[in-house]
């Protein structure tokens, strides 16, 4: 008995249809890029959270991940490079009833936007930050960034990056984030659940997702396709909840330690935000 695979334009409703701007698909991200996978996990995590979609706003910065706000059918803001968290801080403080989510990349959040990242963590601003870490500046053509591992090649470190990278999860935790988790784009279930937890967490919640960038980082570091990187994640990542994030950086190869590292309580701002619109 052969179950027909319906190909071509289907009329059956995609489960995320109400939250994705399908009129703007196919999106601009490269074949094998993990961003679409992370975006899907975010939307499913949002659905699971029970938050009222109309009260959720997404703010993104500049870069490949920055384009995510444009595909999300919620109130969404595509702001300037590095300033998404600062913009989101103003939005949240002015309208505490909103659930404000920042969806941006490693370069946007930790290089040019690093100052706002660490201060938002320090203040424990009631925001959820989704950091898609693909270890390079993809949009501008594959330069190394603040998280690029030592010895990794990029279009501006062709003989191998000599700088010591940030460990994003450790940086967020050290700044004061009260929820920090790291996943890879291959862990679709864990991402979804963790994103729901982060969305419902009061205070500064930070989810780092290691994501494939076939066009640059993968191609220049012996994992030329998105599938190669996803396979690498599946065979090299382990889940160790509660690990001290300082001890688990991510190298150009070797093991990737994932899991929920931090989940603590601390006073957050604005304290006046009520129960997050039925969350």
């Amino acid at each position: 008995m052969n179950v027909p695979v319906v190909t071509g334009e289907t009329t059956e409703k995609h489960p995320l249809e109400d939250y994705l701007r399908f009129d703007r698909l196919p999106h601009i991200w490269c074949p094998g890029c993990g961003l679409g996978t992370v975006l899907g996990a975010f939307l499913r995590g949002l659905l699971q959270s029970g938050l009222t979609p109309d009260k959720v706003a997404v703010v993104s910065g500049i870069g490949c991940t920055g384009r995510s706000a444009g595909y999300i059918k919620l109130d969404s803001f595509h702001t300037t490079h590095g300033r998404a968290i600062a913009f989101a801080t103003g939005l949240k403080l002015a309208k505490p009833e909103l659930k404000v989510v920042v969806f941006s990349g490693d370069g946007d959040l930790a290089a040019i936007g690093g100052n706002h990242l660490i201060h938002a963590g320090r203040r424990n601003i009631d925001l959820t930050v989704l950091c898609v870490n693909n270890f390079n500046y993809g949009m501008t053509g594959g330069q190394f960034g603040p998280t690029t591992p030592v010895a990794a090649r990029s279009t501006t470190s062709r003989t191998g990056n000599i700088e010591n990278p940030f460990n994003m999860s450790a940086l967020a935790a050290a700044s004061g984030a009260t929820y920090v988790a790291r996943w890879t784009a291959a862990q679709v279930h864990q991402m979804e659940r963790s994103i729901t937890e982060a969305l419902l967490k009061r205070g500064f919640s930070f989810v780092e997702v290691i994501s494939p960038c076939p066009t640059y980082y993968g191609r220049m570091n012996r994992l030329p396709t998105g599938l190669d990187q996803m396979r690498y994640y599946r065979s090299n990542s382990v889940v160790r909840h509660g690990t001290n994030p300082n001890e688990v950086g991510v190298g150009v190869d070797g093991q990737i330690v994932t899991g929920k590292f931090i989940d603590i309580e601390r006073p957050y701002l604005p304290s006046s935000g009520d129960g997050n619109n039925g969350g």
Partner: peptide, 12 residues
């Protein structure tokens, strides 16, 4: 950050 926060607040 100040200017970005002002824009965010206005949209709030």
């Amino acid at each position: 950050g100040s200017m970005a926060a002002v824009l965010g607040a206005s949209w709030g």
